[in-house]
Design a protein around this nucleic acid. Structure first.
Ligand SMILES: [Mn+2]
Ligand SMILES: [Mn+2]
Ligand SMILES: [Mn+2]
Ligand SMILES: [Mn+2]
Lengths: 223, 223
DNA sequence: TTTATTTGTTAGACAAATCTAATATATTAA
DNA sequence: TTAATATATTAGATTTGTCTAACAAATAAA
């Protein structure tokens, strides 16, 4: 198996390349709070293990093997987050740090049990897809809320930014996964949006907030 | 906080001194599958941190601070084992390895939640006491089954040896914590015991087995 | 197209945790 | 009480993961 540290590098590389396409030594070093030389030598080490394709001054890339390993760690992370929320009563803003540690536990049975108890969930508490046992991720194609127009009915499906502060803010304005939203108005000037939730509450979101929300469009008849 | 490794040393030293009184460098090295020089240098390091009293060629001892830290790790270990058995459906023979890893997770909230969900248990699935939040252990005073005599009624309260093989053996002969036992016969020759369980099954245990079982004596009227 | 800036690499140091080999002390047996 | 054995310590090497400082390459600005 791989060390705790190697696993964190693999996962970070996997996530960064999904978000931003090309991953550089600098971006990875920032993501992990490490210096560039540390990243550089770890990349060489992982290249030795055939998990990373490394060529000097070229963008970093995972091999197929590396992608699978990374996805399986991500699977453990997201299953854990789901378990913490669904079965232990944690809020979605308090699970990431714990999952960051639990994801390194080496026990097939432990995560299989979690999976089973949760009923084989497809998404984590933030709406991110949970890779399957082969590391395959089923991609959703949702719309960013800030790309929606006035009058549309949507349901909140995922958040693409998961800082504690943002999640706590969403709690405060009563936005949870599954919340039905109708867009009342979209301000051209600053792209802020006035929304009404199915609960009846009206809220206004800045573009900075709505950019991080993924929604599914509803037929207007499904009120 | 302390490293994963330091925590394992602390816990091992704590457990060994409870079992055997004096702990030597050799015994600790065997317990941890490390060589003596590794133990030696870790003891010096922990002495620096005021967790261990170290004097050359003297038995190893924890300081009060060291005892508390060790007990708190043991608390996390035993809470985890209890959680795995009670809330996730693991058998008591399959939880130790997982708990050995989970005990190092740094999150007060995580273990507080476990504790709460379990209803603040006092014992783990093997009947060992769970240290409280201050690291205080409440000692039971049970009897070893092999010290009991013919005709006595007892209840199985704890096992003092917890290898997978022994626990699986106990499963096979239907001995669980809480099982009521009547001693039918005790063979002087080899100290083997013939027992009858409240389920009605009759079994015969070797001294090697009964030595590892702690029982509570019952008034004979409580059948 | 030179120059400046950013990004990436190499070299070398360091702390943590481990080991082997050599040596010292303590204990047990003769 | 000496010799043999068991236990403990020291010295020094090794692996892993990190860092800083110096240098090299690529990119952006002038
Ligand atoms: Mn997370
Ligand atoms: Mn992690
Ligand atoms: Mn255990
Ligand atoms: Mn452990």
């Amino acid at each position: 198996m791989h060390s705790h540290t190697e696993e964190n590098y693999l996962k970070a590389l996997f996530l960064l390349s999904q978000e931003n396409g090309k991953v550089t030594v600098l971006s990875l070093s920032r993501h992990l709070n490490n210096k560039m030389p540390s990243v550089n030598s770890m990349m060489k080490k992982l290249a030795e293990k055939k998990l990373v394709k490394y060529k000097s001054y070229q963008p970093l890339e995972l091999t197929e093997k590396g992608k699978k390993e990374a996805a399986l760690i991500l699977r453990k992370h997201r299953l854990t987050e789901m378990y913490l929320v669904e079965k232990m009563g944690f809020g979605w803003e308090n699970v990431h740090e714990i999952a960051e540690q639990v994801e390194h536990i080496q026990s097939k049975a432990f995560f299989d049990k979690m999976d089973e108890i949760l009923g084989f969930p497809k998404f984590d508490p933030h709406g991110s897809p949970i890779p399957d046992k082969n590391g395959i991720i089923e991609w959703y194609n949702y719309t960013h809320l800030n790309d929606c127009i006035s009058g549309e009915n949507v349901v909140l499906m995922a958040v693409t930014h998961t800082s504690d502060e943002f999640l706590k803010y969403l709690n405060k304005v009563n936005l949870n996964l599954g919340t039905q939203i109708k867009i009342l108005e979209r301000e051209d000037f600053d792209q802020s949006m006035k929304l009404i939730l199915n609960s009846g509450t009206e809220i206004t979101l800045s573009a900075a907030a709505s950019r991080n929300l993924l929604v599914k469009k509803q037929n207007s008849r499904q009120k």
